[in-house]
Simulated scan of single mutants.
Amino acid sequence: MTITDAVETFLAMLAAERGAAANTLAAYRRDLEGAEEAIGDLVHADNAALASLGAAWSGLAPSSLARKCSALRQFYGFLVDEGWRKDDPSPALPRPRARRPLPRLLSHTEVEALFARAEDEAAGDKPDAVRMLALLELLYGSGLRATELVSLPLSAVPRDAPFLTVTGKGGQQRMVPVSSRARKALTRWLTLRSDAGKALFPSTSRQGHLTRIRLFQLLRALAARAGIDPEKVSPHVLRHAFATHLLEGGADLRVLQTLLGHADIATTQIYTHVDSARLVALVNARHPLSRQAS
């Protein structure tokens, strides 16, 4: 078994069994090829060779090192499962202590200001303003990723059921609930939308759907008009706000995982840290003893 055969078979498994997206597969390929350049044949590498990657990758950011080591651990687990190796040398890999940064957050007041501005601008049924309101409702009200939102086809909008059919990472589909507010905004948008293709949010400057970059620009422009620092606002920040505010309201973590389309509950658990950080800040700011300490 050559390294090329092993890597290709491993990537094929990720695509077939785990539904890994093209970008994910490309990243795994780069990481494995980079490791091979550093230590040679990965299929037959021993513990000492893998341990030497700590020095070879010493200049990498902790998050990059963690990603590369994760790719190698999964690769060697695959080799053992397939019977191509009897041992797993991956415990010798360097172990970065990378803390995942907490997501940026918007307060309830800031979210309310965004919606107040969007609703005020959409009052006159200007198509661009109504579209912005519908986009905002789905970002904060349903927690969609930017790519999921802009690529929604018209067929994703149900006639009578309060759900959207969303295609997420790795081509995985899930049903996302749509609030009554969002349904009203979507209904208004559909009556004003020009008949341009199959996209729910068609581009006004080219064929196809609205781009992620354009969505980002529209959202930041709305934030500026609402008196909010545009640097604080992005589609992903609104997705974080959706998750955090639901958790504050008592949502179950497993339910939140399903709504967000996370394959691993560990990804969703970051929101427990966000909520904990908020509670600590609240105690520090409001508890009587905190005033005595200052």
Results as ranks from 00 to 15, higher is better:
Ala161Pro: 03
Thr165Met: 14
Thr167Trp: 02
Thr167Val: 14
Gly168Arg: 06
Gly170His: 06
Gly171Pro: 10
Arg174Ala: 11
Arg174Cys: 09
Met175Phe: 09
Val176Glu: 00
Ser179Lys: 08
Arg181Glu: 11
Ala185Gly: 08
Leu186Ala: 06
Thr187Ile: 05
Thr187Arg: 14
Thr191Gln: 15
Leu192Asp: 06
Asp195Glu: 15
Asp195Ile: 10
Ala196His: 14
Ala199Asn: 04
Ala199Thr: 02
Leu200Tyr: 10
Leu200Gln: 04
Phe201Trp: 01
Arg206Cys: 10
Arg206Pro: 03
Arg206Phe: 06
His209Met: 07
His209Phe: 09
Ile213Ala: 13
Ile213Ser: 10
Leu215Gly: 00
Phe216Ser: 01
Gln217Arg: 11
Leu218Thr: 00
Leu219Val: 07
Ala221Gln: 13
Ala226Ser: 14
Lys232Arg: 15
Lys232Asn: 06
Leu238Glu: 02
Ala241Arg: 01
Ala243Glu: 02
Thr244Ala: 14
Gly250Arg: 08
Asp252Ala: 08
Val255Ala: 14
Leu256His: 07
Leu256Lys: 03
Thr258Cys: 03
Thr258Tyr: 09
Thr258Asn: 13
Leu259Glu: 01
Leu259Gln: 03
Leu259His: 00
Leu260Trp: 08
Leu260Lys: 02
Gly261Met: 09
Gly261Trp: 06
His262Pro: 04
Ala266Gln: 11
Ala266Trp: 04
Thr268Gly: 02
Gln269Pro: 00
Ile270Tyr: 03
Tyr271Thr: 07
Thr272Val: 14
His273Tyr: 05
Ala277Lys: 12
Ala277Glu: 15
Ala277Asp: 15
Arg278Phe: 11
Leu279Gly: 01
Val280Thr: 11
Ala281Val: 03
Leu282Phe: 13
Val283Asn: 04
Val283Thr: 11
